[in-house]
Nucleic acid binder design. Sequence first.
DNA 1: TTGTAGGCGTTATCAT
DNA 2: ATGATAACGCCTACAA
Lengths: 346, 346
Amino acid sequence: MSSKAASKPTIFNVAELAGVSIKTVSRVVNREPNVQEKTRKKVEAAIDKLGYRPNVSARGLSSKRAYVIGLIYENPQEFSYVKDVLNSALSECETLGYSLVLKPVTVTDGTAIEDIRKFATQTRMDGVLLPPPMGDTPGIEALLRELGLPCARLTPISELEDSVTINCDDEESSFDLTRYVITLGHERIGFVKGHPDHRASHDRFHGYERALESSGIEVEESLICQGYFDFESGQSAASELLDLEERPTAIIAANDDMAAGVLHEVHERGLAIPEEISVAGFDDTVISGRTWPPLTTVRQPIREMTRVAVRQLVDKITAPDSLEPAPEFHCAVIVRGSTGPRNTPK
Amino acid sequence: MSSKAASKPTIFNVAELAGVSIKTVSRVVNREPNVQEKTRKKVEAAIDKLGYRPNVSARGLSSKRAYVIGLIYENPQEFSYVKDVLNSALSECETLGYSLVLKPVTVTDGTAIEDIRKFATQTRMDGVLLPPPMGDTPGIEALLRELGLPCARLTPISELEDSVTINCDDEESSFDLTRYVITLGHERIGFVKGHPDHRASHDRFHGYERALESSGIEVEESLICQGYFDFESGQSAASELLDLEERPTAIIAANDDMAAGVLHEVHERGLAIPEEISVAGFDDTVISGRTWPPLTTVRQPIREMTRVAVRQLVDKITAPDSLEPAPEFHCAVIVRGSTGPRNTPK
DNA sequence: TTGTAGGCGTTATCAT
DNA sequence: ATGATAACGCCTACAA
């Protein structure tokens, strides 16, 4: 090693060492066609030897691309869902040579749109990834279109033709979960809905309704509570349900955080789980294995869905025309200790 | 609005509108001295009117800076601690005009160093932020020095003169927590240590020891278990402690995740909390409010510490000489339902 | 298949 | 206090 830290090698150094022009090096680096195998080998050898890495700033300046994709997400108390998306997106971006920049926003207080606009003008991105509920928040789509930013959404809504949409059948998985609870003998099954602005909330609720109907159980209004996907709302919904004259023997919440809140309230009242009441959630987030008892829940293949979303987003950035259809993803019911057979009163 | 999307305004447009040279605009944008107040006003008006934002790529290319700082963190099951660091770092970076790029690594399996090296050569950064335990992982410091990357560490270790170090007195907070438990009447107090590679583990353990000694309670070997900061290790440590001939009436775990594991095991055995056994953790992470009962724990001002760390890191990047000393941070014991008075056997 | 010239938007240098 | 001009490292056109 020389005494002075050698400054980073540039495309010129590589070209010189390989005995070609910089354009040829550029072609090799960017996997463009029209390079002879032999030339390519020479160039690659030079790149390795020098440890050359393209300068992102120069590349961005010249190509008008930033090689950056943004992840805009609702900043929740419980980070589990976003964490899975984040990790998966991070690793996929790394393999595709992109950077990921994060933008947490709050949709509930109406600041999201302006926040995103500011964010977009401040940091250059080539596209954005929208995990739920960003994918179905009104206004965001329009804003991104205005800004000329392609996006990939993780959402059940697939109306928009030209937009990358990755989804999983929430309605069906909710149907499956509810059916499972019914097979345990439960008939009075409470349901805690998710935030009304989230598409998943409705899908999950409809799955519940359909399962009850298909088993000949009447959907009872008093057993249905509004929640907002957070722990506290699960807690207060449970409070309502447990105050009922004839209380439910099982409660399904539209996500794990609310289900954890339900468990909390049930514990507060000294009821035994699952002997006196069964509880189930959605998403198979980390918290579902940490509660007592561990939660029965539904697992989405979030990591795979995210991988595909990122890949398709990059495809769309590089070749806006060809849109391969996304594969279908399916959920699975994960049975744990929070659900059990109904105690038939004698 | 014109039919064609006007391309983004450049420094030339601003200069033209303000009737000055681009260099003057540059001076204003970068808050450099030697600009008349009147000129500055003119330029600022032009900037506002055009909605001008400097192009990060161009700036990076010219200044040799990336305006990016890296956050290298141990990717844990429980994300709570890192999440707080992340959110705080994100908002501070935004106000300072930097981007934050994430790099999750695994220190336990020895891949971290190579991962970081690869990451550093792949994405240009001006500095990195090292939350625990990255700040006290051997080798990382040396690697960053070799790469010429300044760093700011959130760690109790403050040996290195030239390195930004932010810390909080873990030993003292552990002392305080243990003292609190002692005042509840407990004398047989189990302790679940953290991962031995983390400096905080030792500090917290020493605080525990010192508190016992200062109260005239003997430190008993059999009440001390090795854990690794994760849920599972807390669980198995609790299992050991509860198998003891004369079991402890309280258990302190060196972080919340392990404490949650302890709670889990206690529940498994059907023991009442806190009547039969008290449990406490560290860090006041989200999980501590989600367990049953909620955990007594210790809160660090993580967000403020992170803010200062980022700010000092950027200072170091821009002016490597002047190193202002960091302020001192203090922890606080948060009392919740998982601890209670010892049941004195009659 | 390969190479040459010009420009991307900024900061830095050196005048004035 | 302000300005002209040359880098910075790469990519896109266009030649050869």
